[in-house]
Write a protein that binds this DNA or RNA. Structure first.
Lengths: 152, 152
DNA sequence: AACGATTAGATCGTGCGCGATATATCTCGG
DNA sequence: CCGAGATATATCGCGCACGATCTAATCGTT
């Protein structure tokens, strides 16, 4: 097996990072028409999923889960609050902390969202096991990259 | 093997789309300090790679390659032009078309960039073959998703 | 030649996503 | 109890990323 030349490594189609980048955007485009009826953008959908999984998280809890900064989350959460899906309340015991809780509407939205992952799954044209395997591999890669980042 | 329940499917860590989304961002963060000396952002880097591979492409050529719209590319290309890395010129034969060509500086930047993919490759902690395999799988997935999109 | 339809880019408004910085609150040593 | 640091969130500016819309150029048909 030949060692890859630097010219190979600089081809767009050989770059793992570009594959991830473009596949991620493709997913966002695919989700868009499904999320529109719920009034959610794709990142907002991810935040809602995190909350359905575990209500009452703090801003930084969500940030750790989704790998997002407060500068991204604060405006996004304000939009979700304006939409009536969540409430942002300062923690009594520590006024620095903002705790995010689902409103009744926000919690109810979960049922409408329940059908979405299956529809997306179909579009991937992969078996459930292939999806599982790929998800796991990419998540492991993300962990490796993140630890390389925090080490630096 | 049990059929996955809808509650499983709505867990963030089981979502292929989230794995891609977050791993993509992790890559961007990893590239950032390496691209800073070149004066490039990550999407700008991708455009430069496309041009190093094939100089003189049109805006829509680049858009097709990278799956980006003119509304994204036009401002980005203007920034690259301001930075002196490319030139934007209307095609003589068809004045609607804008052709993107590398300046001497833009072409020269390729040498500096050549070391980056290897540094990134190391950080993935994967073998060259694993990277290749994963890249291929994700690219195939992207193609499936995109064809689902254009079909709709 | 002429005009409707198509095409290539550009522009605009909205929503991420982040680094740098600001503000408010808490913690801890003395 | 007080001030120095630490912590949680917010704010700001910049650069994507996209859909909707605009403009200018080209193409096709008559």
């Amino acid at each position: 097996m030949a060692r890859p030349s630097s010219s190979d490594l600089l081809k767009i189609d050989n770059l793992l990072c570009f594959a991830l980048y473009s596949a991620g955007h493709s997913f966002t485009r695919l989700y868009k028409p499904l999320l529109e009826p719920l009034g959610l953008t794709y990142p907002q959908f991810l935040v809602m999923i995190a909350l359905w999984e575990n209500d009452g998280q703090t801003v930084s809890d969500i940030g750790e889960k989704l790998l997002l900064e407060s500068s991204t989350l604060t405006p996004l959460l304000k939009r979700l609050e304006t939409a009536g899906l969540i409430k942002r309340t300062r923690d009594r015991d520590d006024e620095r902390v903002v705790r995010i809780t689902l409103t009744r509407q926000g919690a109810a939205l979960k049922d409408k969202a329940a059908t979405i992952p299956e529809a997306i799954g179909c579009a991937t044209n992969l078996t459930i096991n292939d999806v599982k395997k790929l998800t796991h591999e990419i998540a492991a890669l993300r962990k490796t990259l993140q630890s390389a980042l925090t080490a630096a």
